[in-house]
Amino acid sequence: MSRDEISKFLSYVLRHEPQAIGLQLDSEGWTDIDALIAGAARSGRSLDIETIKEVVTSSDKKRFSLSTDDRLIRAAQGHSSAQVRLQHTQKQPPECLYHGTASRFLESIEVQGLIAGTRHHVHLSQEVPTALQVGQRYGSPVILEVDALRMHAQGFEFFQADNGVWLTQAVPAEFLKRA
C-alpha cells in the first residue's frame, strides 16, 4: 500500500469504522497500534509500526497522533464513530476562521448554516489556502468566512484539535459570508 492508501485506511478505521477490522477505540479515540496492525492483517493489509510512524509524522495535515510511548494511535479529529467523544480544551478563536465547501452546497448553507452532519464538529481553518484545499475535494470551491470571535462572544464554544483544525458544533448562517 502507498502512504496515501495507508493514510486513507487509517482515517477510515480510526475516524469512522473501527469495527470493520475488529478495532476498539476508547472515548478519546486511542487504540493500541499492535491491535491496529493485527486488524489490518485480518483484512488483508500489511502494516508495521515503522510504516505507521512514517505516515503519521510525514503527514502535512497531521491527521493522526501517537502517544508519547508510540504504543497508541488516534485520529486528531473528524470522528463519526459513536465510541469516540474527544474532550478538546475550549479555546478563544481568532477573529475569523474559514470553511471550504463546494458551490453546490451554498444554497443549503445560506439557510441552515454549517452543521456537523455525521461528524461530531464542523471543521474550520485559520488559513484561506487550507479551506480552499478542502473545498476543492467536493467540487467547485467556495470559501466561507466565519465571524468566529463574535460567535464566541455570544456563547458558542470553539476547540482546537491536535493538528490545528478549529472545531465547533455548528455555525449559524448569520455568522457566515463569502470570503
Score class of each variant (00 low, 15 high):
L167T: 04
E157M: 11
P94V: 03
T89S: 14
H88G: 07
G139I: 03
A116F: 00
L149R: 06
P94R: 06
Q112K: 13
V134A: 14
G113M: 01
Q126T: 13
L114A: 08
L66A: 00
R104W: 14
S140K: 14
V142N: 01
H120M: 12
S65K: 00
L72V: 06
L72A: 10
L114T: 11
T168K: 04
L72Q: 12
F64M: 06
A161F: 06
Y138R: 05
A153W: 11
L66C: 00
G164W: 02
L114S: 09
H99Y: 04
E110K: 15
T168P: 06
K91N: 08
S65Y: 00
Q112A: 13
S67A: 07
P141I: 02
T89K: 15
L66G: 00
D162H: 10
A82K: 12
T89F: 10
L72I: 05
N163P: 01
A116W: 00
R104Y: 14
V142D: 01
P93G: 05
S65F: 00
T68M: 12
L114E: 09
G113R: 06
E157P: 06
S103I: 12
F158C: 04
Q112E: 13
R119N: 15
H88S: 05
A148E: 08
Q126M: 13
G164Y: 03
I109C: 04
R119I: 06
A131G: 05
H120N: 14
L72E: 09
V146Q: 04
P129I: 02
Q112P: 00
T101W: 04
T130Y: 07
R119W: 11
S108P: 09
A82R: 11
G100N: 01
D147L: 13
E157F: 11
E107S: 14
H120Y: 11
F105Q: 12
A102N: 11
N163Q: 06
L86K: 12
R71S: 10
H123Q: 07
V122P: 07
V122R: 08
S65P: 00
G100D: 04
Q133L: 08
A82V: 13
S125N: 10
R71F: 04
Q126K: 15
L72C: 07
S140V: 07
H88M: 09
V111E: 15
E107C: 09
G164I: 01
S125H: 09
V134R: 15
Q112D: 13
Q169V: 08
Q126I: 13
L97H: 07
I73V: 09
T130W: 04
V128K: 10
Q160S: 06
P141Q: 03
I73W: 01
F159M: 10
Q154K: 13
D70P: 01
G117Y: 10
Q90F: 12
V84F: 13
A102F: 03
V84M: 11
S108A: 15
V146G: 02
S81H: 04
G135C: 02
S80N: 10
L149P: 00
